[in-house]
Design a protein around this nucleic acid. Structure first.
Length: 187
DNA sequence: CATGGGATTGACT
DNA sequence: GTCAATCCCATGC
């Protein structure tokens, strides 16, 4: 699969979050189309990067086009694509996929049958793809996880925007994007 | 060194 | 609708 170049990520995070909708994410022959994203930026308190550069946030402040993976609620691995210039802490959380390849592998990893339940949440899709904490910092342009451009059929889909989910600060920013009428978005 | 919170999920009432 | 699981990391003593 042809991959998005680093320049794609080296732009304002909200723009990248919107444009990642419809793109394909792939790991080890398992793949899906991104149908839901959220943007996070160090200027607003919902972002992990808001506290500044620490051991945890180092990947966020690093070069764009890398993967930021962290553990949520002690249980789940959540995946983000790092954006903007090095030194700015900004990333796009991948929140849901429409499964494409390796659906049987996803079912085995998730222990579930329904296709709509495999990747319809940020913790679910990491498990379905087989991506864990050890992937923090890998380069999306050359590493084991790849993101490619929108297939032709996905170039015209309607994208909606609204408030982000599951946060307690900056709750009104409309920085969540999703495909209208998709059965594969979270919730 | 101890503590507290969290960008979630699945099970249960 | 409610709620617990579970662990990494930042912070404070």
């Amino acid at each position: 699969m042809r991959r998005l170049a680093q320049g794609f990520y080296a732009r304002p995070v909200v723009e990248v979050a919107r444009e990642l909708i419809g793109c394909v994410i792939e790991h080890d022959h398992v793949s899906g189309v991104i149908v839901e994203t959220e943007a996070y930026h160090d200027s607003e308190p919902a972002s992990h990067a808001f506290i500044g550069l620490t051991l945890r946030t180092a990947t966020l402040f690093g070069p764009p086009g890398r993967l930021y993976v962290y553990r949520s609620y002690g249980i789940h691995a959540l995946m983000n694509a790092v954006t903007e210039a090095e030194g700015v802490g900004a990333a796009v959380l991948i929140r849901a996929l429409e499964p494409v390849d390796g659906i049987e592998i996803m079912r085995r990893r998730r222990g579930l049958e329904r296709v709509e339940d495999l990747c319809s949440g940020p913790g679910k899709l990491s498990q379905a793809l087989g991506v864990g904490l050890s992937y923090n910092g890998v380069d999306l342009a050359s590493g084991p996880v790849a993101i490619g451009p929108r297939p032709r059929a996905w170039r015209q889909v309607q994208i909606l925007a609204g408030p982000r989910i599951g946060i307690t600060k900056a709750v009104t920013l409309p920085w969540r994007f999703w495909v209208a009428n998709s059965r594969f978005v979270s919730r």
